[in-house]
Design a protein around this nucleic acid. Sequence first.
DNA 1: CGTCTGTTTGATCACTATCAACCCCCGTGG
DNA 2: CCACGGGGGTTGATAGTGATCAAACAGACG
Lengths: 265, 265
Amino acid sequence: MEAGRQRQGRLWSNLKEVCDLLHIPAAISVNNEELLFQHVQFKTGQRVHTIGQAFDTLYIVNSGFLKTVLIDEFGNEQVLSFPMKGDMLGVDGIHTRHYASEAVALSDCDLILLPFKKLTALGRVHSELENVMYGVMSRELVREQAMIGMLGALSAEARVARFLVSLADRFAAMGYSSKLFNLRMTRHEIGSYLGLTLETVSRTLSAFNEIGLITVDQRTIGIKDAEALKTLRRLPPSRSRAKQTTKQQKAEADQSGDDQVLAAV
Amino acid sequence: MEAGRQRQGRLWSNLKEVCDLLHIPAAISVNNEELLFQHVQFKTGQRVHTIGQAFDTLYIVNSGFLKTVLIDEFGNEQVLSFPMKGDMLGVDGIHTRHYASEAVALSDCDLILLPFKKLTALGRVHSELENVMYGVMSRELVREQAMIGMLGALSAEARVARFLVSLADRFAAMGYSSKLFNLRMTRHEIGSYLGLTLETVSRTLSAFNEIGLITVDQRTIGIKDAEALKTLRRLPPSRSRAKQTTKQQKAEADQSGDDQVLAAV
DNA sequence: CGTCTGTTTGATCACTATCAACCCCCGTGG
DNA sequence: CCACGGGGGTTGATAGTGATCAAACAGACG
């Protein structure tokens, strides 16, 4: 895209571009043009790294969409994240020096290579780089914490709703429309990510569509009521079975106690 | 305990002791006795840090048991982890410079303070320290990934079983018995951690007890069949990667009509 | 035009949450 | 010393959410 320059027929980026991509304010005054990081392209379906593979480089997504997955003893995939522009890949390999997850391109991708050795050597000279790395890793950790909180506490509908909001926010941060976008992943992958089945994901999207919160056309999603999606806990009873929801919900909302929280839209 | 020395009526540890505690092989030849980190004691129920509090120090557990929690908009706690000896606290505060979670002592605790500023300054002189930090953060990340995988894919029974095995392993790593130990947390906290209700946790423990996998007496747990607990499954989740597993799944499904549906592998 | 993958929708099942009652342990105060 | 209270734990009955099984449809593609 915009970042990077040609050399030997390949794209390269300097440190400032890398930091910009990561949304990390880097006041780094390095002799930029000497410190270049190479880009690599991956086509849809290609694997960037696999579980157990020897770790030696981190990746930053410059363009494209990916998924990272864990694979259990039966070969079932568990989706961990959907990295896109500005996200870092491979951090889980630092500890054991072997990648703990697998990264797969969901579209054609352009990634920036950060050889870990080179990075740490660089840190020795420019110690500000340390803080950049700490910041990125900490951010990743916080994200995963939020994910754990979501999986542990929210209903299927709330998970799907938050997933959509999260996607919208990320698209917005990338300069794309947050109101209309295309899912790059299948229902099955979304379900795996959210701890649900693909049928539940599909049904929930359909329900949101009926209520008017979103529009759904295959992989094209239109966000109509972002605010409702953000605060959604549970869906109002779809057909009939009306138990004077308004009053009851109000009463429940008022006492905002500890446990179950219903349908606060 | 063993680590640390007295000075001004307080305990202090050097860098080597800190690294040992973290199980990180640190070939650091620093003038040890000059680089001391202070200990602090917390009593049961005390908070080490709270959400939103300004971040300035990391903590390493020298002794005692804690929990870290997220608190949602209604005041509900979501337990994220149960740190114990050798674990690091506060990493989630690096990114935003404010702690993202709350840490509470479940027993009287002895923690080592790692002022973050001091740590990064130290990294400038002793660059091996960088790798220690990266390693610890990466390990934390991998742990959380495993947690996400567990919450997303495993049944209630499998979660409780793995929780027990994980505790046993950690006690073993600390030099305690892995066959008989005391839970430091309530059923409610376990449930929150595992994305279950306290009743489900209680029932599952009772069921394991009846089957002879463990013994339960209030908070005292005896592990009788660690292997069975490790491999306990249920719910061959999704037909994501349907291979020649069809026969096996069918066989499992056939005998799943009984009351005891504990499909071990 | 058939095949294959992904999606939608329906019917049913069952795992786990919820509601409720009771028990156990322990500390406290009459 | 015992009554009392309260937090934590166990167990039972019931309901509901989401998984499972099943069928049909829509695009993509050779």
